[in-house]
Design a protein around this nucleic acid. Structure first.
Length: 153
DNA sequence: GCCAACGTTGGC
DNA sequence: GCCAACGTTGGC
């Protein structure tokens, strides 16, 4: 069963252009330090699940690309790196705490901004639009995915 | 920079 | 296990 996901990235860290410029247009989704978001990657994601690449904490927050889950889960290497701001002193290679997947960008899209998402009929209950939602990875229902694909053209 | 809404931490 | 204090997220 294919699932769909919305994955937030700060473009100052990894933008959709950065991902496109990477080998195979693929990046490891490092830095997730929230258990619920981790569990989505670790337990529910499958290779070829659909991904909405979303830019947050920037001038134009919104969906900027379409991608796919490109790997099974594996330990986030930054948790073991003392020099990384994502270092987790409680994590060891024997007992990793944070898992990630690789994400491959399939195409860059126009920026489908928050305001347009909020106005689109049928997207009212998209998880990311719910009040107070801060999760960096959220599931997207197939009907939402279809509407967003249509908006992106 | 503000601040609402959460998640995490740590003393008890 | 409770819960107050604290830290973070992220749009505005």
């Amino acid at each position: 069963m294919t699932h769909y996901w919305l994955m937030k990235s700060e473009p100052s860290e990894v933008s959709v252009d950065d991902a496109l410029a990477a080998p195979k247009s693929t990046v490891a989704w490092t830095g997730v330090r929230n258990y619920q978001a981790r569990n989505f990657m670790r337990d529910l994601m499958r290779v070829d699940d659909g991904v909405l690449f979303y830019h947050s904490s920037c001038a134009e927050p919104g969906v900027v690309g379409i991608g796919r889950v490109a790997s099974t889960p594996y330990p986030d290497p930054t948790q073991f790196d003392p020099a990384s701001k994502y270092h987790d002193p409680k994590a060891t290679p024997e007992t990793p705490r944070w898992q990630l997947v690789d994400v491959q960008v399939l195409r860059k899209t126009r920026t489908l901004g928050l305001a347009e998402l909020r106005e689109a009929p049928g997207l009212e209950d998209l998880v990311i639009l719910r009040r107070g939602n801060r999760l960096s990875i959220t599931p997207v229902e197939p009907r939402h995915w279809k509407i967003i694909q249509k908006l992106l053209g």
